[in-house]
Design a protein around this nucleic acid. Structure first.
Lengths: 208, 208
DNA sequence: CAAATATAATTAACACTGTTAATAATTCAA
DNA sequence: TTGAATTATTAACAGTGTTAATTATATTTG
């Protein structure tokens, strides 16, 4: 069945073209400026063709949101090699902050915009797992658990601790992305302030 | 000049009508469903009349964002009466969390949506003060400073400490508002988890 | 009081948006 | 080569923010 295979490949290729065009518009002109017609222009197809490959506009954003998680995972691929869980935790935080600040649009899709979550609920049911977020949080939990088990950190409720750490880094990045941080701290101080806060957090939870 | 006065009042009244209609739509149908035509329908004027009272749609959101900060300040009016700065800090956090969870639309405008910040930069210049955010952060800083001065908390860089605390509570609330928290923690556990995290934070920074 | 002037509100239009139904073009199998 | 299936397109609907031109309503002046 070589024909069916080639067809399948072609289909995937057009999907990829659509996703790339969408991301290009998203990055260069922002979320609100991504329109089906502009996407169609970029890939040189008619607007309605997009609907042959995606159910609707939100499904495009859902796919991009997943790609974002892939990129994030790739950035973190060296983390397991760090033996000391406290050092690893610190590096996890640094990676998170850098990823968010350098990939604002992906971060927006992954953690701020509603569209991807709505599509997720629509295609996988309202109480489904959010794969990307779930695995990221589990990595965090595993490292925190190791910190506590090995006596680097005082034992506390793991779920509470994990949400505390995640909430903190997400808070900083999302304030920055949505232009609130720069109103309170000089622009060039934003990243240093975040990293200092992260330092403070790790030092504070660590048992000497 | 009784006539000019009355006219001024009438003008303000229509502005108020527009703002109330906008908020009603915003709360009941969400940000994306607020349209000039629907606002006009609600106040029983033609769509273009709205433009006699507001420069554009974003200016409406900017005004609503300020009203949000007023509401927040009102909620916090009893805070200065709390003598112990550490207790006061805890109550500040609680108020912040409750305000965000119970006034999601206002919170969205105040801390997440870009529209109000764009209008702010447009009407007051790119490097202006963000009054609402600025005064809120100053309140936090003053309480933190008192905590450190009076020996309740170990002395640290005040700016870093303030952004840490704010980032943390904002992180939780914004994850919840944008439907990420509920994917990681059962819905009924969201608020308790936040309050536990807050407890943990206060206890951790406190010197025994 | 009537005419001239400001002010306020409206209608019509432009250039967009997401999305769907109906139609045309193309490719594949018999 | 014909018929069926797939792929793409055109046309249209109902909506959006916003502006220019026009009408209606007050207010001020002669």
């Amino acid at each position: 069945m070589g024909i069916a295979e080639r067809k399948e490949k072609q289909k995937l290729e057009i999907r990829k073209m659509i996703l790339e065009a969408s991301m290009k518009l998203f990055v260069e002109e922002g979320f609100e400026s991504v329109s089906i017609r502009k996407i169609a222009d970029l890939i040189e197809y008619s607007p309605t063709t997009v609907y042959l490959y995606f159910k609707d506009k939100d499904e495009i954003f859902y796919d991009l949101h997943n790609i974002g998680f892939q990129k994030f995972q790739e950035l973190n691929k060296d983390l397991p090699a760090i033996e000391n869980p406290l050092v690893r935790l610190h590096k996890m935080g640094e990676n998170y902050i850098h990823f968010g600040m350098e990939n604002r649009e992906y971060y927006d899709l992954m953690f701020i915009l509603r569209a991807p979550m709505e599509t997720l609920a629509q295609i996988k049911g309202p109480d489904c797992v959010w794969v990307g977020g779930d695995s990221a949080l589990n990595n965090l939990k595993a490292t925190l658990d190791e910190c506590m088990e090995r006596g680097f950190v005082r034992k506390t409720d793991l779920d509470v601790m994990a949400m505390t750490v995640w909430g903190m880094v997400h808070g900083w990045v999302s304030l920055a992305i949505r232009e609130r941080f720069e109103k309170m701290v000089p622009k060039e101080e934003i990243l240093p302030t975040m990293l200092k806060s992260l330092d403070w957090l790790i030092k504070t939870i660590a048992l000497k």
